[in-house]
Amino acid sequence: MEKGGSGHTVEYVPEHRKEGRRRMANPGPMGLFSFAATTFLLSLFNLHTRDIQTPNVIIGMAIFAGGLVQLLAGMWEVPNGNVFGATAFASYGAFWMSYATIFIPSSGVIASFNGNMDEFNQAIGLYLMVWFMITLMFIPPVLKKNIAFVVLLSCLSLALLMLSIGAFNGMPSVNKAGGVFGVITGLVAFYIGVAQMLAAERTAIIHLPLGVLSED
């Protein structure tokens, strides 16, 4: 401790501790890759890629990659002071874990509908519509800062909207449209994740633009 000019006690912070604070790792790429991989894979299933009709392989991915890893990324954004990152990653982590739970047989969620799949589809449609609304709320905070995130959240919004409408109306073509927007969302998230990793590396030989409009 040292006495400041005004007589107040000032805490002495060693240089190595200051450097440690400056070099706190950015958890964004980790969260983005987990989000991208899970979204991309489920969207391929929604498009029936390789003639896959049953998408339950996504359950493990949704729990651990899309869910747990994103939740951790959100919590690690808190000490970085990134309110948007903490809120978005934690929210989508919760989304993926809750989505996976619906399709785990032992959860009993699907069984509780007693084979009434029309009612189940209406419920899933409402579930996806709520997340469409949440995603829309994430767009205003990034409108004047980052074009890449605006594109990402816009594509995700369209994917969730299409999937919700497809569940309500039982229209395979609309579900496939949601799958297409989901694939685009995953690719954009991969791009942003790579860009953030390159930006964090002093030895990176290239940097990818994110369309940053303001540093404020």
Rank of each mutant, 00 (worst) to 15 (best):
F64E: 02
T54Q: 13
G81F: 05
V150T: 01
R21E: 15
L128E: 10
D216Y: 07
L160I: 08
R202Y: 10
A65D: 06
N56C: 01
V212R: 13
I102T: 12
I184F: 08
N26G: 02
G85Q: 04
S173I: 08
R17G: 03
V188C: 07
L160P: 02
G178N: 01
N46Q: 12
A90N: 08
F181T: 09
T135W: 00
G20F: 10
L68K: 01
F103H: 11
I58S: 06
H207M: 08
M30T: 12
T38G: 10
M117I: 12
L158T: 06
A90V: 14
N56L: 11
N121I: 01
Q196R: 13
L44I: 04
N146H: 05
K176F: 05
F33I: 15
G125N: 09
I134P: 00
I206A: 04
R50D: 06
R21M: 14
N46I: 04
F95G: 07
L208C: 10
I102H: 09
M30E: 07
P141H: 03
S34E: 05
N46E: 08
I63A: 07
I102F: 10
G28L: 01
Y12M: 15
M117R: 14
K145F: 08
G60P: 03
P29Y: 04
V10N: 12
P27E: 08
L160K: 09
E119V: 12
Y12I: 12
L210H: 07
A62E: 13
A73D: 07
W131G: 05
N114I: 03
Y92P: 04
L152G: 09
G178Y: 02
S214L: 06
F64M: 09
R23Y: 13
R22Y: 12
L44T: 04
Q53A: 13
T49G: 00
Q196D: 15
G74Q: 07
S214C: 13
K145T: 11
N46W: 08
V180W: 03
S6H: 15
I102G: 04
G186P: 01
G170A: 03
Y191L: 06
N175L: 13
D216V: 13
I102N: 14
G115P: 10
M162Y: 05
D51V: 02
G93T: 08
G115V: 07
A90E: 05
R17V: 14
A189W: 07
A199F: 08
Q196M: 15
M197V: 11
P79H: 09
N114G: 05
